[in-house]
Simulated assay, not measured.
Amino acid sequence: MTAPLKAQSFADLKPLRRTLQEQAALQAERERLRREAEQRARAERHLFQDAVGAVQPLKGQHERHWPAPVPPEPLPVQRQLDEARVLHESLSDEFDVSTLLDVDDQLSFRRTGMGPDVTRRLRAGQWSIQRQLDLHGLRVDEAREALGQFIRLAHRTGLRCVRVVHGKGLGSPGKTPVLKGRVQGWLVQKKEVLAFVQARPADGGAGALVVLLAPSPRRI
């Protein structure tokens, strides 16, 4: 705070008067800036109201505008049916396939009603292999799921002859094939499979099966 000024003589009045005028002008400028700041703050608070003008609330429910309801998305019925069918057709690891295999050195399989010429022609390579599934490195549960999906998709897309590589088991404990017997049991449980034989040496030999699929009723 500025200390009050005292005039010692008439000669000191002129500087004193000038100082008082400067202080009054400074105070007036501060007041002007304060009022402008308040006006700007009010304008910001009432910006929307000043822009649209006076408004009135709606009087009744009937005067409101309700947007049309959004229809629910269609249910994927076919996908749900397919998934339910897959669960119903889940492959069992306890299935005994030995009684269904032909007793020969390669333990081939043909479904009831299929003649022996089917496996003979399949072994001779009269059907071209159109797709292959390699199960190397998969756990049993992974291999089972992969095989089920592979056979189902191959049949739906109209493939007739595929190869499934299960390995010879040389890297397994005791050097016994872990997947070979399971793959045979899983294939027998798939209604899409008509027959299978051990692959020819050039196609994988004892480490693979050549599978004949039933004709697909529809192509996708």
Score class of each variant (00 low, 15 high):
M1V: 03
P4D: 09
Q8G: 14
S9L: 01
S9H: 05
F10M: 11
L16T: 02
L20D: 09
L20A: 15
L26I: 00
Q27G: 05
R30A: 02
E31W: 02
E31F: 04
A37P: 01
Q39K: 15
R40F: 01
R45E: 10
H46C: 03
H46S: 04
L47F: 11
F48Y: 06
Q49Y: 05
D50P: 06
A51T: 13
V52L: 15
V52P: 10
G53R: 14
A54E: 15
A54R: 15
V55N: 12
P57G: 10
K59A: 15
E63Q: 11
P69R: 07
P74A: 06
L81F: 09
D82T: 00
E83R: 10
A84I: 06
R85P: 05
H88S: 14
H88M: 13
H88R: 15
S90T: 14
S92G: 11
F95S: 13
D96R: 04
T99E: 14
L101F: 05
D102M: 05
D102P: 00
V103M: 06
V103T: 12
D105E: 15
L107Y: 09
F109Q: 04
R110M: 02
G113A: 04
P116W: 03
D117A: 12
D117I: 11
T119P: 04
R120D: 09
I129H: 09
I129S: 08
Q130V: 05
L133Y: 11
L133R: 12
L133P: 03
H136A: 09
V140Q: 13
E142S: 07
R152T: 01
R152F: 02
A154P: 10
R160G: 04
R160C: 06
V162S: 06
R163P: 02
R163F: 05
H166R: 12
H166P: 00
K168R: 15
P173K: 11
T176D: 13
L179Y: 02
K180F: 02
W186P: 01
V188G: 05
K190Y: 09
V193H: 00
L194T: 01
A195S: 05
Q198R: 04
A199G: 00
P201K: 05
P201A: 00
A202G: 00
G205H: 10
G207K: 10
V210A: 04
P215I: 03
P215V: 01
R219S: 10
